[in-house]
Design a protein around this nucleic acid. Structure first.
Lengths: 187, 187
DNA sequence: CCAGTTATGTACCAGTCGGTACATAATGTG
DNA sequence: CACATTATGTACCGACTGGTACATAACTGG
């Protein structure tokens, strides 16, 4: 039998995700990754193939977790409350650094759109899945669920930009509440 | 008298802006800049000091032009029409590559927030000036001009993300019209 | 036509990038 | 205890990064 693995793959991947999430793909160097993941070069390439492959894995992990947050905050029969819960759970019920980091999918789309079309496309697909979930949330409660989901996602994207621009908690709360009340009056 | 300058500084800067706008700061290499600006290394450093200094110059140029678009599309007494004109003039009345490139300020904020705080902050300040212009647009026409401007800017940021995600013209039109009608009903 | 001044082209720099090769260490099985 | 197997540490790689030094070119005023 071989020598056993010494590190926790999930923990390492998590540390990598944090780094990619905050700094983006290009600005995150292998040296930084190795340091934060606390593994050596060899173990890195043995376990994750590539910087790029690891990034893809992190991106999908992030997307999955985001969708979990959305689903766990789901308020049956009340789409707007579901949206409110999602914003609440992603921008106030989390440590500040997560707010500052924004949304990894949005960050990736903007960073790599004209640099690495494939990675950018992957992030777009992940975001589309979130939007699809919102369509499902709005179904049977509004005339045009797809349009409603699209508007909510546009607001969401805007909010992630503001988050990353280091907007104060008060400003974010203001933006979220006013956009949601807008949706409320429209529905 | 000295040897005369052989290149057009404004044209060169413009070419650089295009590149930074599309690829971001980090992903744009000096070699790419020199090629698209059609100048040599020496002329580059003589005329623009630095990659970083040039980026700042480009960012401010972009911000200035954006504000010009907003002001030129201004419809007196009709804030929402002003907003509509702004979206129209930035996403439909321009070549497709500009739409795909998104907003350079938004791109910069997301790319550099945790990498180069100063550049990110500069982009944030530029965006805030645009928002301030919207405050002025809404003044005397709604209860809370600052809030209205904030909402419009949130939608704007969201739309820039969608643009960069290669959304079709139809999708963009849909998002813009539905968000604007939302604002309309709320006002 | 020469001198002074400034722009341009090019060779070069140290530092960093992601990735690989290979020797060594640690394990279970025979 | 030797062996096969696999994980880990490290030296190394070519390519590229932004930036500098310096020789040369092009111009004008004397």
């Amino acid at each position: 039998m071989p020598r056993p693995i010494e590190f926790d793959r999930d923990r390492a991947r998590n540390a990598a995700m944090k780094l990619f999430w905050r700094q983006g793909y290009t600005a995150t160097s292998l040296a930084q990754l190795l340091e934060s993941m606390k593994i050596g070069r060899s173990s890195f390439y043995a376990a994750f193939t590539d910087k790029r492959s690891l990034f893809i894995e992190c991106l999908e992990l992030f997307a999955e977790r985001t969708r979990e947050i959305l689903e766990q905050g789901h308020v049956p029969q009340q789409p707007l409350e579901t949206a409110r819960a999602f914003f609440e759970n992603t921008t106030f019920a989390v440590p500040r650094w997560r707010v500052d980091a924004g949304c990894m999918m949005v960050n990736t789309i903007l960073e790599l759109s004209d640099v690495d079309a494939d990675l950018s496309r992957r992030a777009t697909v992940c975001l589309a899945r979130i939007e699809q979930t919102f369509v499902w949330v709005f179904e049977h409660h509004v005339d045009d669920p797809r349009q409603a989901a699209s508007v909510v996602m546009t607001l969401n994207k805007g909010i992630r930009v503001s988050s990353r621009a280091r907007a104060s908690e008060a400003e974010l709360r203001q933006v979220i509440s006013s956009t949601l009340s807008l949706l409320d009056r429209a529905a």
